[in-house]
Amino acid sequence: MTTFQLEKHVNYVKSLDKKSDFDSVVMEHLRMSGAYWGLTALDLMHSLNDMDGEEIAAWILKCQHDCGGFGGNIGHDPHILYTLSAVQILALFDKLSVVDADKIAKYISGLQREDGSFAGDEWGEIDTRFTYTAVSCLSLLKRLDSINVEKATDFLVRCRNFDGGFGCTPGAESHAGQIFCCVGALAILGALHHVDRDLLGWWLCERQVKAGGLNGRPEKLPDVCYSWWVLSSLIIIDRAHWISKEKLRDFILNCQDQDRGGISDAPDDAVDVFHTFFGVGGLSLLEYPGLKSIDPAYALPVDVIDRVFYGQKS
C-alpha cells in the first residue's frame, strides 16, 4: 500500500512561498487563501511551528482595508472570502487578538441582504459560499449576533434542491462544494434539522465512483478536493459510514507526488497547494495516523477550534 509522504508534503508547502514563476504570479490575487490552505495543511502535519507567525500576522494586517474587510493580497480589494482566510490564519497562530473583531463583524454584517443572503463584496454577487464565509468568520470572532441569523438560515434552506443537495443560489444545481458551504453554515448555526440527512446522504454517497474517489457532481471525474467537500458534509450529517472509506483513502494516497511532495487533483496530475490541503484534510477526516484531526465545519484543526471556543491550549 502507498504510504503518506508527510515530510515531503511539508517541504513542498514550505517551498511555495519562494516561487515566482508565471503561474504563481497570476495567483497573487488569492494569496490569502493560498496561505490558509498551506498553513492549515502544515498544522495538520504538526509543522506549523516552523513558520513565522509574527511575520505572517503583520502581512495579514497590511491586507486589511478601512472598511474592515481583507483583500487577497496587499493592494487588492476586500472580499468576504479573504476576510475568512485572514481570520482562519490568525486563529491557527492564536493571534485573533491582533484584529478588531467588531470592525470585521461590521464589514460582514454590512454584506447581508434583505433576503438573508450575503454578497461577496460591495459589488453584490450572491452565493451560498459567502453565507458560509460570513457565518464561519463571525462564529470564530464570536460575533454571530451581528447578523440576522434567522434570515441567513432561511436563505440557505431556499437553496435546497429536490435531490437534497444545495446550489450557489436558490434553484441552482447541487454541487458538493456548495453543499459543504450550506451544511457547514447550518451546522454552525445549529440548524441542521433543515437537512434531510438520508436524502442528502444518498446524493453525496453517489459521488463515490467505483475506483474510490469522489466527484463533485453527477457525471464528473473524481477529484481529491471533493474528498473534503463531500466527506466533511457526510460527517456533519452523520452519514460517512455509507461510503467506502478505505477506497477513498487509497485514492487520495495515489494522488501524491511521491518524489517531490504535494497532492494533485487526480493521479499523475501536477500538484498544487489547494489539492494538497484538501487531500491532507480528507485523510485527517479519515483519521489517518500521524495527522491532527480537523473540524469538518470550520476546516481548521480541532485543537484550534477548542482553543478559540473553550480557551484550551494544545
Binding site: M27, L30, S33, W37, L81, R129, Y132, C168, H175, A176, G177, Q178, F180, C181, G216, D223, C225, W229, D265, D272, V273, F274, H275
Partner: peptide
C-alpha cells in the same frame, strides 16, 4: 472550485 475559486 466552488469555495476556493479557480485553482483547479
Amino acid at each position: 472550485e466552488p469555495y476556493a475559486h479557480a485553482d483547479c
